[in-house]
Design a protein around this nucleic acid. Sequence first.
DNA 1: TAAATACGCAACTCTTTGGTTGCCTTTTCG
DNA 2: CGAAAAGGCAACCAAAGAGTTGCGTATTTA
Lengths: 105, 105
Amino acid sequence: MRDEAALFAALGDDTRLGLVARLGEGPSSIAGLTRGGDLTRQAVTKHLYVLERAGLVSCARLGRESLWELRRQRLEEARAFLDVMSQRWDDRLERLRVYVEDHKP
Amino acid sequence: MRDEAALFAALGDDTRLGLVARLGEGPSSIAGLTRGGDLTRQAVTKHLYVLERAGLVSCARLGRESLWELRRQRLEEARAFLDVMSQRWDDRLERLRVYVEDHKP
DNA sequence: TAAATACGCAACTCTTTGGTTGCCTTTTCG
DNA sequence: CGAAAAGGCAACCAAAGAGTTGCGTATTTA
């Protein structure tokens, strides 16, 4: 899977998007992220691993708990990709011209 | 599924991301999108429906072919979401301060 | 030291999903 | 008109994913 797709796939889940949002407030442990929600600790852990594989979060063990934090750089990369796609779509008239050109009889 | 998650989920697939990229160059028919790739027409169709449900593309029937095009607005929404997440993560020191504050003995 | 807390690992279930094949309708064009 | 091109619909399959339970290991803390 290409890099950006993995990134978006990691973000494309309610639970994980919620975790990203919570980690956006600051680092947290697994137990901390589990509290309040209606998920199992293991479910949360799995989602964190998915986010980690996508490069969106990182983990540091601190005593008996592991602190997870968001990696801002990766979010920027996703944003940059959307920028390119969006800009390419910028000039609608130009696109239309090209399209009509290509379909001339 | 919340709106943004569906958006990212739609983008979180190699094939679909490829389709988005190709549609970024301009509108295209299903047969056009199928040509060149190694996918079945039906596979392409299914992916287009996924993108459509996410609001990323729209379709207009033209004669015997259906022209699909990218919806720029939706890309912007995804980008805006990432902006918020990223900005929230902006001040690392402030976050650290809050975290230490919360964990005071 | 013993209980409680935080976490890792593994097996299992159930649903989603990416992809296929087969067949049928509509439109274009020689 | 008749063949070919574009596409819709439905059934089917294999793999991935989300979530759970159960059990074992470290680390605090009373």
